[in-house]
Amino acid sequence: MNDAAAAALADAFPERSVERLTGVGPSWNGANETVGVAFADGGRAFCKVAVDGDGTRIARELAVLRYLAAERPIAVPDVLAGDPDATVPYLVTAPAPGRELLDLWDELGEREGGEADRAALLRRVGATLATLHAERFETHGEIVGSDGRGGLALDPAPWPDVLLKTIERTREIGTSERLGHHYDAVVDCVEANRDRLRDAPAALLHGDVAMPNLFVVGAGTGRDREAEAGDGIAPIDWELAHVGDPARDLVRAEDQLLNGFDERGPERYAAALRAGYAECADGLPAGFAARRPIYEVVRMLGRSGFVDQWTTYVDEPMADLVDRAEAEMEARLEAV
């Protein structure tokens, strides 16, 4: 039994016995550890602990989950317990509603007509992002917790500065410094484009729209029937949430959901994601086309900072991946 998780669960549920802890798959964030929990009474949960002792991410995720659960139209897991100030900060949630998008995506790929079904799923993801981004704020900022009135407490700052802080966080959780100079290049790009970024809308962003973080709520894929009440996408893992430009979240979602190391996924899928967003929001985020190239540069850090992790998914020598990342970063910087 993981000692940190066991300590957190004993603090949160002193009268409940834990039968076992289970792994939840690989994570590229070494600062946290998440385990599945099977209680002796038959209950199930997930426990996330900040193994580095920094409760900032736990406080952020706890605040966002409670904010969204308060009658807002985004399905999220129920919070069972959480303490960002504990010796080992922790968050315990109920299982997410629905079925993991990644599992359904793989299953659909083996069916006749699966491409259309996959596109329908991506439209639902786009609509869910648009619904999330409808939560607007007067200022951009880092989420630091709850405000005590059911809202979110922000550390306000101009959007370029908030974006730079997210870049710092990426470096903190990154697993490789092999391409550390890419962080400097991205920071320089943001600084050089402050005027293009400054007037972006201020919306609630998820910040990590990857398939393992999305669960499909409702039966089927929605391709051949009308949407039903409760249909949608339930996101988990809100620790990177912040208030910023919705265009950044949409660019990141497309990249994480569809693209490879330096290859883009099928355009029909990207178009479905954007179409679902546009239908729900009456268009793409304001300034999407103008700011997209900047966010494409920022997204390269998802390769550069984790190039060692990518070697487990791309069957090529590290040196080749580094060369490809260098070329891709140069091309993206030129596109700005």
Rank of each mutant, 00 (worst) to 15 (best):
M1I: 11
A6E: 15
A6Y: 03
A6T: 15
A6F: 08
A8W: 02
L9S: 08
A12D: 04
F13Y: 12
S17I: 09
V18I: 14
G25F: 00
G25W: 02
S27H: 01
N29E: 10
A31F: 06
V35E: 07
G36T: 04
G36N: 11
F39H: 09
F46M: 12
C47E: 06
A50P: 10
V51A: 13
G53V: 09
D54E: 14
G55W: 06
G55R: 11
R57Q: 15
R60A: 08
E61G: 02
L62F: 03
L62A: 00
A63N: 01
A63V: 05
L65Q: 00
E71N: 12
R72D: 11
P73F: 07
P73I: 05
D78L: 14
V88A: 14
P89T: 11
Y90L: 07
V92G: 00
A94S: 13
R99C: 01
L102V: 06
L102C: 03
E110S: 12
A116T: 05
A119Y: 00
R124M: 10
G126M: 07
T128F: 03
L129M: 04
A134N: 09
A134E: 14
E135H: 15
E138I: 09
T139Y: 06
E142R: 10
V144P: 07
R149P: 03
G150F: 10
G151M: 06
A153Q: 10
A157K: 09
A157G: 02
V162S: 00
L164N: 07
T166H: 09
T166C: 01
I167V: 15
E168H: 13
R169K: 06
R171A: 14
E172T: 11
S176C: 12
G180P: 13
H181V: 10
H181L: 11
H182C: 13
V186Q: 10
V186H: 11
C189S: 14
V190D: 12
E191H: 13
A192Q: 13
R194Y: 07
R194C: 06
L204S: 00
G207S: 08
G207V: 10
M211T: 00
M211R: 14
L214P: 02
F215V: 04
V217F: 05
D224S: 13
A227G: 15
E228G: 09
G232K: 04
E239P: 08
A241Y: 08
H242S: 12
V243N: 04
V243C: 01
P246C: 05
L250F: 02
V251Q: 10
V251W: 10
Q256T: 04
Q256F: 13
Q256G: 05
E263C: 08
E263R: 15
R264H: 11
P266C: 05
A271N: 09
A275F: 02
Y277E: 03
A278D: 04
E279L: 11
C280T: 15
A281T: 12
A281R: 05
A281L: 02
G283P: 07
F288T: 05
R292I: 11
R299P: 03
L301W: 10
S304C: 13
Q309L: 14
Y313T: 12
Y313K: 12
D315Y: 11
E316M: 06
L321G: 02
L321R: 02
V322G: 00
E326Q: 14
E330V: 02
R332T: 12
E334M: 08
